[in-house]
Design a binder for these strands. Structure first.
Lengths: 171, 171
DNA sequence: ATGGATGCAAAGCGTTTGCATACAG
DNA sequence: CTGTATGCAAACGCTTTGCATCCAT
């Protein structure tokens, strides 16, 4: 028999597929892996991209050849479950929507958010977690995770006119 | 004549009151400091606490002795302006509401968010900004700020029963 | 079989906006 | 005076939910 909180800590074992992993989680909750839920998980894990609920709704809400139509309500409900299951997580908020990403079998990282083009860019840095781990400990805080958005202008948007000379910039 | 972007960088001078500071900002935008706006700023800066729009609405929406009643719409509009003015900033999202805090005359800091009691706890750590500054530079990203939420269980909520002896905790 | 799951449409909820009226400069 | 700002209520956009029907186990 497996322990209760086990699936919370066996991230090292990146073996089972997201669908399988989800089924396991559902089982522990007395819930079922339905066709709809499987369709949603497959769609979400088809590629490692940030996404929001509406994008998934857009893709699965209209009839598809494989008959995989899923309702908006079910998509919202399933995304919540996936979050509880630890398969995805909220990374930011953009345009009044929560933005999610895969949180299963993926290395820890954070994001830049460009204020001009709104694009999210991932970056990895182990120092950050280390510092946070230490600071949390200092405060008796039991850290379970963090959410870090670095705001500013991305490299692309930073060089705007691109055609004009830049000599007179700062007299 | 002052330059365009000047008020973006004179944070060092912590002299003017929030209201005065706001008036300055409004002036640069061809906007006016109305009674309502002043009431809102005073209310927000009355004490250094995190707040959300609804709390301010609750306090200013019902008639008050000083006749300072302000409508919900104006409060939302003013909070946006205060954010643009750099007087306040969003720090987190709690209960589906944006949580704000003072960002004028206050040292940089980040927050713990307790998953049990939902409370926000500030902490300061200069390493974090330093690391981010460096990482951003490495990516050609022009950082303007960041938003960091550290999630977990606060010291208070971590020691639950509190009345029971703790000898048998871990056989 | 049968309790959980889906789909639909309606409700929720924080936030925004159109418009007529009311002031700050 | 005149262009802004306010207040009200209706509109919005994302998300949640009630309920009848459906299906995984």
């Amino acid at each position: 028999m497996s322990d209760l909180a086990v699936n919370e800590f066996d991230r090292q074992e990146v073996a089972a597929s997201p669908v399988e992993k989800f089924r396991e989680y559902l089982a522990t909750q007395g819930k079922r892996l339905t066709q709809e839920r499987e369709t949603i998980v497959r769609e979400i894990f088809a590629e490692h991209e940030h996404f929001d609920s509406d994008q998934i709704v857009a893709r699965l809400t209209q009839p598809r050849r494989d008959g995989g139509r899923v309702s908006r309500a079910t998509i919202y409900r399933t995304i919540s479950s996936l979050e509880e299951a630890g398969l995805i997580r909220k990374v930011a908020r953009s345009n009044d929507r929560e933005v999610y990403e895969h949180d299963y079998g993926y290395p820890q990282h954070d994001h830049f958010i460009c204020e001009k083009c709104q694009q999210l860019v991932e970056f990895r840095n182990e120092e950050i977690s280390a510092v946070l781990e230490r600071v949390a400990a200092d405060h008796g805080f039991r850290m379970s995770g963090h959410r870090l958005e670095v705001h500013g202008i991305c490299a692309e948007c930073a060089k705007p006119p691109s055609r004009r000379h830049r000599k007179l910039d700062m007299i």
